[in-house]
Deep mutational scan, measured.
Amino acid sequence: MDEEYDVIVLGTGLTECILSGIMSVNGKKVLHMDRNPYYGGESSSITPLEELYKRFQLLEGPPESMGRGRDWNVDLIPKFLMANGQLVKMLLYTEVTRYLDFKVVEGSFVYKGGKIYKVPSTETEALASNLMGMFEKRRFRKFLVFVANFDENDPKTFEGVDPQTTSMRDVYRKFDLGQDVIDFTGHALALYRTDDYLDQPCLETVNRIKLYSESLARYGKSPYLYPLYGLGELPQGFARLSAIYGGTYMLNKPVDDIIMENGKVVGVKSEGEVARCKQLICDPSYIPDRVRKAGQVIRIICILSHPIKNTNDANSCQIIIPQNQVNRKSDIYVCMISYAHNVAAQGKYIAIASTTVETTDPEKEVEPALELLEPIDQKFVAISDLYEPIDDGCESQVFCSCSYDATTHFETTCNDIKDIYKRMAGTAFDFENMKRKQNDVFGEAEQ
């Protein structure tokens, strides 16, 4: 370990593993360490099931009705991949897709007046949907046509809207959309967690709705994908990429100290040895004095023996409960997957309800979601602090990732990755940087 590296990475969460992969592909010498004996950090999948019970201090362990412990891979952080989103792009560019198998999530649902409705995925579904009345549908269709044709580089498509100054509230007004449709559009399509976006320039919202539609167009059922064997497969896929390009991995490796000289990182000390480096990437748990708390998320993992009611017996789905429907500031989400994804025993389902904490009784906040899941065989409640770095790391060369937020997709995580890359490399992130180099010394032969 007593060696000189360009970059040392602490923690094998998804953000850290993707950055480690990119740095290795770009010719950097990388050492990647984790104090845990497993990959994934906060974003790991726990197996066998006995391990999950232990982690949540349920000492009696799983009953026999849960089947074989080894058949379970339970995500600690519930997220899906947008089919046309940035993480899929990263997987394709790096060819990490060859280590993973994905399934399309069967449906996306939205909560309205105590019931759940399928988010329409085709024009026919939209016309048949009970989510809105006849005239509302016509106006909504006009709005969707506007979004589909919108091109930020072609003012002819703006229809009198200025993407940089017109607020989204004004765009909704222009198409005369009612409150329910606005809730549905902002939260189930643009996937905002709160209503803060309404008074911001509309460009980002329009682009988010386009991303949803384009992702949906790829597979038809929903815009989301999920990897077989759980999300823990993602960091491992990128760790393989890093290793192929010469990255060194050490799990179960305690970090005793991060060594600084004149305010700059110069190395990491572990078990009496020092590895030197020019730059350091880590998750917040490794540098508690360089991060601040930015809120909390509650996630309740529920094991069920039945599909969720009114989802047409889907073996995977997402449910969004827009905040307006339950008098909150932030949406509540449910991600459900099952034995069909090799993450649970035969006939079992895993539904994870999550939201940003707003009160001193977080469990009560998630109740509307839990009511949709009854009866629940077993619950595991996790309340996590969200951390963000206190500075950009440019001076110390210590670059810290943000905690995983309450969103049900990876777009915010990818933004964090691109942002850290830019601060480390001094140049904007470009997907081309992730391409495997042809015929290089570490390149794998085609399968």
Results as ranks from 00 to 15, higher is better:
Asp416Ala: 08
Asp385Ser: 14
Tyr212Gln: 00
Met336Thr: 10
Phe143Met: 10
Gln346Ser: 11
His341Phe: 15
Asp170Asn: 10
Arg193Tyr: 15
Glu42Lys: 07
Val119Met: 05
Gln200Pro: 06
Phe380Leu: 11
Glu95Arg: 15
Asn315Lys: 06
Gln279Arg: 10
Glu432Tyr: 04
Ile182Asn: 09
Ser24Ala: 03
Tyr339Cys: 11
Ile350Ala: 02
Thr412Glu: 15
Thr165Pro: 03
Leu370Pro: 01
Arg193Cys: 09
Gly107Leu: 04
Glu411Asp: 03
Arg55Cys: 08
Leu373His: 09
Val381Glu: 02
Gly11Asp: 11
Met424Gly: 04
Asp331Cys: 13
Cys317Arg: 02
Tyr229Asn: 08
Asp196Glu: 00
Glu374Lys: 08
Lys118Asp: 05
Val357Phe: 14
Lys269Thr: 12
Cys317Phe: 04
Ile300Cys: 01
Asn262Ile: 01
His341Gln: 00
Val147Gly: 03
Phe56Ser: 12
Asp391Tyr: 01
Val326Met: 06
Ala314Tyr: 13
Cys402Trp: 04
Tyr192Gln: 15
Pro254Leu: 07
Asn207Thr: 12
Phe143Asp: 01
Gly160Leu: 01
Ser222Ile: 01
Lys418Tyr: 12
Ile244Ala: 15
Gly160Val: 04
Ala406Cys: 15
Gln397Asp: 12
Ala425Glu: 14
Gly11Val: 01
Gln325Pro: 07
Leu91Pro: 02
Glu261Gly: 08
Glu16Asp: 02
Pro288Cys: 06
Pro63His: 07
Leu241Ser: 06
Leu59His: 06
Arg290Gln: 15
Asn312Asp: 09
Tyr38Leu: 04
Ala445Arg: 12
Lys142Gly: 08
Gly11Ala: 05
Gly160Tyr: 01
Phe431Pro: 06
Thr194Leu: 06
Leu251Gln: 07
Arg141His: 06
Cys17Leu: 03
Asn73Arg: 11
Val255Ile: 15
Asp183Val: 07
Tyr387Ser: 00
Asn36Asp: 10
Ala314Val: 09
Tyr212Cys: 09
Ser43Gly: 11
Tyr38Cys: 10
Pro48Leu: 03
Met33Leu: 12
Leu87Met: 00
Ile8Ala: 08
Thr166Ile: 07
Val110Phe: 03
Glu365Lys: 02
Tyr117Gly: 13
Glu152Trp: 06
Asp183Tyr: 05
Lys348Tyr: 14
Tyr349Lys: 15
Leu59Ile: 13
Pro389Leu: 07
Tyr38Phe: 06
Gly21Leu: 11
Asp405Gly: 06
Glu136Gly: 11
Ala351Asp: 00
Leu241Pro: 14
Met336Gly: 12
Phe429Leu: 12
Gly40Trp: 03
Lys309Ala: 13
Gly393Asn: 01
Val268Ser: 14
Glu432Arg: 14
Asp34Glu: 01
Tyr39Lys: 01
Gln323Arg: 10
Ser45Val: 03
Glu95Gln: 09
Tyr117Val: 03
Asp405Cys: 13
Ser384Thr: 07
Ser242Arg: 03
Met434Tyr: 12
Phe238Cys: 01
Asp256Tyr: 06
Glu374Pro: 00
Glu365Trp: 06
Gly13Tyr: 02
Ala353Val: 11
Ile321Arg: 02
Ser43Arg: 00
Leu76Arg: 12
Val105Arg: 10
Asn310Met: 04
Asp405Tyr: 02
Tyr421Ser: 13
Val274Thr: 15
Lys435Gly: 15
Ser44Ala: 11
Ala128Pro: 03
Ser215Pro: 03
Leu373Ala: 04
Lys210Tyr: 12
Glu371Lys: 11
Asp289Ile: 11
Phe56Thr: 08
Ser20Ala: 11
Ser330Ile: 06
Tyr172Ile: 14
Asp170Val: 03
Tyr5Cys: 02
Ser167Asp: 09
Asp75Gly: 08
Tyr111Lys: 14
Cys335His: 14
Cys17Glu: 01
Gly263Ser: 08
Leu49Met: 00
Phe410Gly: 00
Cys277Phe: 02
Val25Trp: 08
Gln236Trp: 09
Gly272Glu: 11
Glu233Arg: 11
Ile390Phe: 13
Asp199Gly: 08
Asp283Phe: 08
Ile298Asp: 13
Pro78Thr: 00
Tyr212Leu: 15
Leu76Met: 00
Cys202Leu: 13
Val334Arg: 01
Ser213Arg: 10
Leu49Ile: 14
Pro227Val: 05
Gln346Arg: 11
Glu4Tyr: 13
Ser222Trp: 10
Asn84Gly: 15
Leu31Val: 02
Thr413Ala: 12
Ile300Leu: 03
Ser270Gly: 08
Arg35Gln: 08
Asn342Gly: 08
Leu100Gln: 11
Pro227Leu: 05
Val119Leu: 10
Glu214Val: 08
Phe399Val: 05
Pro288His: 05
Ala345Ser: 07
Asp71His: 15
Pro307Ile: 07
Gly27Leu: 09
Gly267Ala: 10
Leu59Lys: 14
Lys264Glu: 08
Met424Val: 10
Val326Glu: 10
Ser213Ala: 01
Asn315Leu: 06
Lys437Ile: 00
Glu125Gln: 07
Tyr53Arg: 14
Asn26Tyr: 12
Asn342Tyr: 12
Ala369Phe: 06
Tyr333Ser: 13
Ala275Tyr: 14
Thr359Lys: 07
Lys293Asp: 07
Leu386Ser: 10
Glu51Val: 11
Cys277Trp: 02
Glu16Arg: 02
Leu372Met: 00
Gly237Arg: 01
Ala190Ser: 08
Lys142Ile: 04
Val206Asp: 03
Arg173Gln: 10
Ile298Cys: 05
Asn262Asp: 10
Gln318Glu: 10
Ile116Tyr: 13
Lys156Glu: 10
Leu372Ile: 10
Arg169Ser: 03
Glu374Gly: 11
Thr360Glu: 14
Thr157Ile: 06
Lys435Met: 12
Gly220Asp: 04
Phe150Cys: 03
Ala345Glu: 14
Glu395Gly: 09
Ser167Asn: 11
Met66Lys: 00
Ile337Arg: 12
Thr359Arg: 05
Ala428Gly: 15
Pro322Val: 04
Arg35Met: 08
Asp2Leu: 01
Glu432Phe: 09
Met168Lys: 12
Val265Asn: 04
Pro368Met: 13
Gly67Val: 07
Tyr219Gly: 15
Gly230Phe: 00
Phe429Val: 11
Asn342Lys: 09
Tyr229Phe: 10
Ala128Met: 09
Ala217Pro: 04
Asn26Asp: 07
Met250Val: 08
Ser270Glu: 05
Ser65Tyr: 06
Ala128Ser: 09
Asn315Met: 14
Thr15Asp: 01
Asn26Trp: 08
Leu19Phe: 14
Ser222Thr: 04
Leu58Gly: 04
Pro235Tyr: 15
Leu58Ser: 11
Phe135Trp: 14
Glu51Trp: 14
Gln164Tyr: 05
Asp283Gly: 09
Cys202Gly: 04
Lys418Leu: 02
Arg299Val: 01
Tyr111Trp: 03
Ile417Val: 10
Lys264Asn: 07
Leu31Phe: 03
Met33Asp: 10
Lys278Gly: 15
Lys422Asp: 14
Gln378Leu: 04
Ser330Leu: 02
Asn327Glu: 06
Phe380Met: 02
Cys394Phe: 12
Lys278Asn: 10
Leu59Phe: 10
Cys202Val: 15
Gly40Arg: 00
Val326Leu: 13
Val297Ser: 15
Glu388Leu: 14
Gln438Tyr: 12
Leu189Pro: 02
Ala406Pro: 10
Leu280Gln: 04
His306Tyr: 04
Val381Lys: 14
Lys364Ala: 11
Asp289Trp: 13
Lys293Met: 09
Thr205Asn: 00
Ser45Ala: 03
Tyr229Gln: 15
Asn324Glu: 12
Ile303Gly: 06
Asn153Ile: 01
Lys329Asn: 06
Val181Gly: 04
Ile18Gly: 02
Cys277Arg: 02
Glu271Arg: 10
Gly246Met: 07
Thr15Asn: 03
Cys394Lys: 13
Glu159Leu: 11
Gly220Val: 07
Asn207Ser: 11
Pro78Leu: 04
Lys293Gly: 06
Pro120Thr: 00
Gly347Glu: 14
Ala148Thr: 09
Ile298Thr: 06
Cys394Thr: 13
Ile300Arg: 00
Asp183Asn: 05
Ala369Asn: 14
Ser401Phe: 03
Trp72Gly: 04
Ala190Gly: 12
Asp419Cys: 05
Pro155Ile: 09
His32Asn: 00
Gln346Pro: 09
Val357Ala: 09
Met132Thr: 08
Ser222Tyr: 10
Lys221Arg: 10
Phe109Gly: 04
Pro322Ser: 07
Glu363Arg: 09
Ala126Gly: 05
Pro368Ala: 12
Ser45Tyr: 00
Gly426Ala: 04
Gly67Arg: 07
Pro227Ser: 05
Arg299Thr: 12
Arg98Cys: 06
Met33Val: 11
His409Glu: 06
Ile350Val: 12
